[in-house]
């Protein structure tokens, strides 16, 4: 079924430098949004992440960051292909808010 409503209003997460690849985030995510990429680094798929926060507390090194946080600019190269449409690492958090709800 084709879906036409605006799916994304919040900010999904990305993984930034410093991740130790422990994999706990992948295990706790109910939405299959975190997986190991071809570069053998864990990444968050912005299409699937509903920003539920389930992965934040288990992460022992605090490297899972909402995309509307300034620290998201430190996103790992491996995670870049999986951010949702319209987001660029150079986009400041105030500009990002203009994109929220923009993806159809």
């Amino acid at each position: 079924m084709a879906r036409s409503f605006t799916r994304r209003h919040g900010a999904p997460f990305v993984i930034i430098d410093g991740c130790i690849e422990c994999g706990i985030c992948e295990r706790v995510c109910p939405y299959d949004a975190i997986f190991m990429s071809d570069e053998l680094e864990f990444v968050v798929d912005g299409e699937k992440c509903p920003s539920c926060n389930r992965c934040l507390d288990p992460c022992p090194v605090g490297t899972i960051i909402p995309m509307d946080d300034q620290r998201a600019a430190q996103i790992r190269p491996s995670n870049r292909p999986f951010v949702f449409d319209g987001w660029q690492e150079s986009v400041a958090s105030d500009k990002l808010s203009a994109h929220q709800g923009g993806r159809k």
């Binding site: 994304r8 209003h9 919040g10 706990i24 295990r27 706790v28 509903p50 920003s51 539920c52 926060n53 934040l56 507390d57 288990p58 909402p66 709800g101």
Partner: peptide, 22 residues
């Protein structure tokens, strides 16, 4: 729309815990 869990409103009577529950 699509609020994060941390944005749920609670006053200062409530205690929230960040237990991983992994």
């Amino acid at each position: 729309k699509f609020m994060k869990s941390e944005e749920l409103a609670r006053d200062d009577r409530f205690t929230r815990t960040a237990v991983p529950l992994d």
